[in-house]
Amino acid sequence: MTRPLQLLAIAGVLLFISLSSACGSGGDAESQPSASETPSSERAYRQASIMQQQEGSVSEQGDGEQQADPVAEHGDGDLGDGEGGGEDLEVMASGEIDFGHRIGLPFSRNVVGDPDAPVLIVEYSDYQ
């Protein structure tokens, strides 16, 4: 009676091991695609990141060129129009003066008046 029980126990253990192995490989088989997807996802993510960085650097260069443009275009170094700021800053830096003796005049940072006015008056000054 002891030996059959031992054999049965051994058979049970072997069955358990084989089933466990089968389930494990099945799990691996299922996880492999996702494992293989992960690197490709990572690559895609990295590529997207690089592209974004490249686009960012291009747009930054573009911004830099735009900032340099006023000087290049005007030759006299037109330093108005919110140069040095981003789009949001430019929006904030222009509008219509709502106080004092210039009330109602359009402005763009340190320039006031009609952008199409035929005459540009530049004043270099120190506050003190």
Partner: peptide
């Protein structure tokens, strides 16, 4: 001159 549209005025810091 600025208000009449004849001119625009730009101030530049010169310290």
């Amino acid at each position: 001159a600025v208000r009449s549209g004849l001119a625009r005025y730009e101030y530049r810091h010169f310290i």
